[in-house]
Design a protein around this nucleic acid. Sequence first.
DNA 1: GGTTAGGGTTCG
Length: 763
Amino acid sequence: MPHELISRLLRGNAKEKKILCPLEGSVGSLVRMRVRGIFCLFETRGGKAVISCCRHHNIMTVYVLSDGSGPGSQVPSHLTRIPMALLCPNTNYNNKTVKGEVIHKGPLVRVATDDLILKTIIHEEDAMQSVDCQRMSINMVIFGALAESFSHRVNPGDILWVSGFTVGKSPTVNKDKLHPCNLLLSGDDACIYLQVSKQRPPEPRSPLASRGSSLTPAEDLRTPRAPRYTYVRLDELKNMAVVNVYGVVVFFKQPFKSRGTDYCSSLKITDQSEHKIGCTIFCEKLEDHPRIFQTGDIVRMHRVKVHLYNNSLTLVNTFGFSVVTFSGAVGGGMEPRTSSKSLQLDEDDRRTIEELRAWAACQALLSSVSAAVPLSAVQPNTYFDLICQLLAKASIDSTCTLLRVWDGTRCPHALLKVIVEPNSTEGPSSFSKHKESHIANVLVYDNHVEFSRHLKPGAFLRIYNLRAIPGSSRVPGLTSSQPVEPDHLAFHLHGGTSYGRGIRLLPENSPDVQELRRAMEAFLDHQDEEVSELNDSELLEVWSTPPEFIDGDVVDCRTERCCDHQLQLVTLSQVKQSAGGQTHHVRAQIGSYEPRRLHRALKLFCCSCSAIQDVPDEELLAGIFSEATRCPTACAPPPWALSGHVDLPGDASASQQHSPSVHLSTKLMTEGKTEQLIFLMGCSLEETQHLAAAYPNVVPVAPSGGRLALMDLTAPFLFRGTDRHYGCKRCSEAAVREPSAAGVEQVDEKMIAESETCCTSCS
DNA sequence: GGTTAGGGTTCG
């Protein structure tokens, strides 16, 4: 194939890509060829091969502009800037450049074996350029090595100058309301000049990076390189050295406010050398501190300095410090906990972590440490960690705050009651009798009062070194008229940070929170049974909202009502004081609602067979997805699909050991709608959502009987942005088929549902 | 390239 033809194809419109060419060699349904450095994908059709896709595998990548003399000064002078608003298809943009700030960066998606695609949105700031807002942000599609380099180098907030691009019509303009064109970057000429956002922390200086020149070509990240970091064992530390270390946490304190400008974390780590080394971390921002949940966690620290203090070596963070924490559970997840934007995590790191986990599991390192205890197992006169959900909180006085928490289990001991004013409570001031019996009142003192100020009801917490005290003495807020209850268990979080005393917010994805949710779910299921036996007044208490009756007349009941604002606005307290049977106009903020788990109040409705089914809750869905990820079985992709692997960006890919794959319809590809529909296999719910943000239609699939199949119909069969579309378990016959979008401008849920023989019941 | 803290239970 002549090089000129391919060059034309690369720059040309979609129609030109359908040129027929003679079949060369053995061709299956798809074949890949390399012609003068250009990868072409051919699809057989009637003894001829049709070019499906072809990309130049260029090596040049993203240029990072040097700091200094002002933005844009190093962009080559032969390039003239063109306002984004003036871009239109089929125009020659040689020697032109478009400038914009990255406002969205999609994941790097691998299609076939050698091609990569990344979608990003850039925004043009300068007001002088255009008054048309829609034309101020544009989708940019980057192919090949440039996409890979972009994925590693560029982040939202960075400023780009783009050249060597072509301009095509945007297939998503109706949906995303962005510029009607796309910027397409592939081939030799495509070039990106990058000005890293000032807000972004600088990356560590690589010894490989060249210095002194105004333009620094980014490293070619596909080539294996020497390990970026070396780690020093804890028995080989030398005073005053700046080192990188790995260690198992044997002691830690949550960050606390120092007398200086920073928060201070104190921890002690060990490794196979059995040396225990204390570490002190000073950082102004809490998020830059080690995110340690429990002893046994593994930390990796870069750029800590060895100091000698009291004849012991200690580590203190120094310039360019970064830390990442992992669970210490053998065989556990590798989700990195870090604020670092440029996390590097390779096979060596994973091996080091697994080795430390395996080693620590055989050591008696953690035997003396207080483990987390559920409320059902709390013993009087002990210190323990409590993993719980905050339901409500109330300030008692300047040195004491009440946290009302639960973990779904019930403490066998009678618990201290603390009476506070309902209007001083954040969160619900009362609960059903059943739930109340599962709630622990935790009194936190002194420095923990300040931290508690930031906590919101609903948050998941780990409270460290909580003390269970029987026969409580007088409690602040208790008036003399209230009897002291001698045999009740009180929970105190004393002031100070001894023994790591403190509170930590747990993220939703932590295994502890997932376990907590299971316990709460079990509680709620049990409560549902009880509610059905409750009488009316108890129901009122549970639902907190009076039934829709006024003077015995049924009030019009709709999901949404409009207020005509004819009545005078009154306060809730005025309503409470007024006689019944009146209509009021109030404006109020929702303090709480029941049922807390809204998915219980919403149902999916099938318009074909009128079946009603529950909306699955997130945890159940996450379980279905992770189950499908865990059991990778061999699966032949359908003959109509072009298959490849997905590289998820940053942390996500680093933390997953699975290998997600993507299947694209070759038919859609030839119709120029490649990205309109992707079939995704082996991704977690979170990853699927992530990709759904970048691609208009994402169908999760799983192997079944050696073939590609839809997932269990409990799960959505289609993600469209944040919308989820479900099949009907009763009447949908789910199957994966190649969709046809001939003559259709845009792929939508209806079209997909029809081709999947799956009815949309709700979204 | 400068401070902070430098684990080891409150005293409610």
